[in-house]
Amino acid sequence: MAPRAFVSFEMEDRWARDFLVQQAKDKNNDISFVDYSVQDPFDSSWKTECKLRIARTKGTIVLVGPTTYKSEAVLWEIAETVRQGHYIFGIQINRDKTHSIPAGLPAKNVVRWDFDQIIKWLSTWV
Score class of each variant (00 low, 15 high):
residue 85 G to Y: 02
residue 22 Q to V: 06
residue 87 Y to T: 00
residue 74 V to G: 07
residue 15 W to T: 04
residue 21 V to S: 11
residue 59 G to S: 04
residue 91 I to G: 10
residue 54 I to P: 00
residue 86 H to L: 12
residue 13 D to T: 05
residue 60 T to P: 08
residue 54 I to W: 11
residue 80 E to K: 04
residue 96 D to R: 03
residue 65 G to I: 04
residue 62 V to S: 05
residue 71 S to Y: 06
residue 68 T to Q: 07
residue 46 W to M: 06
residue 58 K to S: 05
residue 23 Q to T: 08
residue 51 K to D: 13
residue 79 A to H: 03
residue 71 S to K: 08
residue 84 Q to I: 02
residue 57 T to S: 07
residue 37 S to N: 14
residue 32 S to G: 10
residue 36 Y to F: 13
residue 31 I to V: 15
residue 55 A to K: 13
residue 34 V to F: 06
residue 19 F to Y: 11
residue 46 W to E: 07
residue 58 K to F: 08
residue 51 K to Y: 15
residue 50 C to F: 05
residue 90 G to T: 02
residue 94 N to V: 00
residue 67 T to R: 12
residue 58 K to C: 04
residue 78 I to D: 00
residue 88 I to P: 05
residue 20 L to H: 14
residue 18 D to N: 12
residue 30 D to G: 12
residue 87 Y to F: 11
residue 51 K to G: 08
residue 43 D to T: 15
residue 33 F to T: 12
residue 93 I to S: 11
residue 52 L to S: 06
residue 32 S to A: 10
residue 52 L to F: 12
residue 76 W to M: 08
residue 32 S to L: 14
residue 26 D to V: 14
residue 35 D to R: 09
residue 73 A to V: 01
residue 88 I to Y: 03
residue 69 Y to A: 01
residue 48 T to H: 08
residue 53 R to H: 11
residue 12 E to D: 09
residue 60 T to L: 11
residue 30 D to P: 08
residue 38 V to F: 14
residue 51 K to W: 14
residue 87 Y to R: 10
residue 37 S to W: 04
residue 90 G to V: 03
residue 11 M to N: 11
residue 97 K to T: 02
residue 30 D to V: 12
residue 80 E to W: 00
residue 38 V to L: 15
residue 67 T to Q: 10
residue 57 T to L: 02
residue 80 E to G: 01
residue 36 Y to K: 10
residue 56 R to D: 10
residue 14 R to C: 05
residue 55 A to E: 13
residue 25 K to V: 09
residue 29 N to Q: 09
residue 36 Y to A: 13
residue 15 W to Y: 12
residue 48 T to S: 02
residue 74 V to T: 01
residue 89 F to C: 05
residue 34 V to K: 09
residue 81 T to H: 10
residue 18 D to R: 12
residue 37 S to G: 13
residue 63 L to G: 05
residue 54 I to K: 04
residue 89 F to L: 03
residue 14 R to I: 07
residue 55 A to M: 11
residue 76 W to S: 12
residue 71 S to N: 05
residue 77 E to H: 03
residue 93 I to H: 08
residue 66 P to H: 00
residue 45 S to Y: 15
residue 19 F to V: 01
residue 84 Q to M: 07
residue 69 Y to W: 09
residue 89 F to V: 03
residue 87 Y to V: 00
residue 34 V to D: 09
residue 39 Q to N: 14
residue 80 E to M: 11
residue 71 S to Q: 07
residue 11 M to F: 01
residue 16 A to G: 03
residue 49 E to P: 02
residue 50 C to I: 13
residue 81 T to E: 06
residue 84 Q to F: 04
residue 75 L to P: 00
residue 59 G to P: 02
residue 77 E to K: 02
residue 48 T to E: 04
residue 20 L to N: 15
residue 65 G to P: 02
residue 47 K to D: 05
residue 84 Q to G: 03
residue 86 H to Q: 11
residue 96 D to I: 06
residue 12 E to V: 12
residue 51 K to P: 01
residue 49 E to D: 07
residue 84 Q to Y: 01
